[in-house]
Simulated assay, not measured.
Amino acid sequence: MLKATNRNLAQLAPSGIRRISALAAARQGCISLALGEPDFTTPDAICDEVTRALARGETHYPPNNGTAELRRAIAAYMTGQGIERAAEDIIVTVGATEALSSTFRALIDPGDEVIVPVPAFTVYASDVRACGGTVVELDTTRSAFQITPDDLAACVSAATKAIVICSPNNPTGCVLDTPSLDAVAQLAAAHGVYVVCDDVYNRLVYEGAYERFAARHPELADRTVVIDSFSKPWAMTGWRVGWLAATPPVVDEIAKAHQFAVSSVPAFIMPAAARALEVDPAPMVAAFRARRERVVHALADMGLGCNVPTGAFYAFPSIAQTGLDDEAFCERAIREAGVALVPGGCFGVPGHVRLSYCVADDALDEGLSRLAGFVDTLI
Score class of each variant (00 low, 15 high):
14 P>F: 11
22 A>M: 14
27 R>I: 04
31 I>H: 00
31 I>V: 13
31 I>K: 00
33 L>A: 03
35 L>K: 12
45 A>Y: 11
46 I>K: 02
47 C>Q: 15
47 C>S: 15
47 C>N: 14
48 D>V: 06
56 R>N: 04
57 G>S: 04
59 T>W: 03
59 T>N: 05
60 H>G: 10
63 P>W: 09
72 R>C: 14
80 G>W: 11
83 I>W: 00
90 I>Q: 03
95 G>R: 01
101 S>E: 13
117 P>L: 06
117 P>V: 08
118 V>L: 05
118 V>N: 01
127 D>G: 02
137 E>W: 03
139 D>C: 06
147 I>R: 01
153 A>H: 01
155 C>A: 14
161 K>W: 02
164 V>C: 12
164 V>H: 14
165 I>A: 12
175 V>A: 04
180 S>P: 12
182 D>F: 04
188 A>S: 13
200 V>Q: 13
204 L>G: 01
213 F>I: 11
221 A>T: 08
223 R>M: 05
226 V>Y: 14
232 K>V: 08
236 M>N: 05
239 W>G: 00
245 A>W: 08
247 T>S: 15
253 E>H: 13
254 I>D: 07
261 A>W: 00
266 P>M: 08
288 F>A: 13
290 A>T: 13
294 R>H: 14
301 D>L: 10
302 M>N: 06
317 P>K: 02
325 D>H: 02
327 E>F: 03
336 E>V: 07
341 L>P: 00
348 G>L: 07
353 V>N: 10
354 R>N: 08
355 L>E: 07
358 C>H: 02
360 A>D: 15
366 E>M: 09
368 L>K: 01
370 R>E: 12
375 V>F: 04
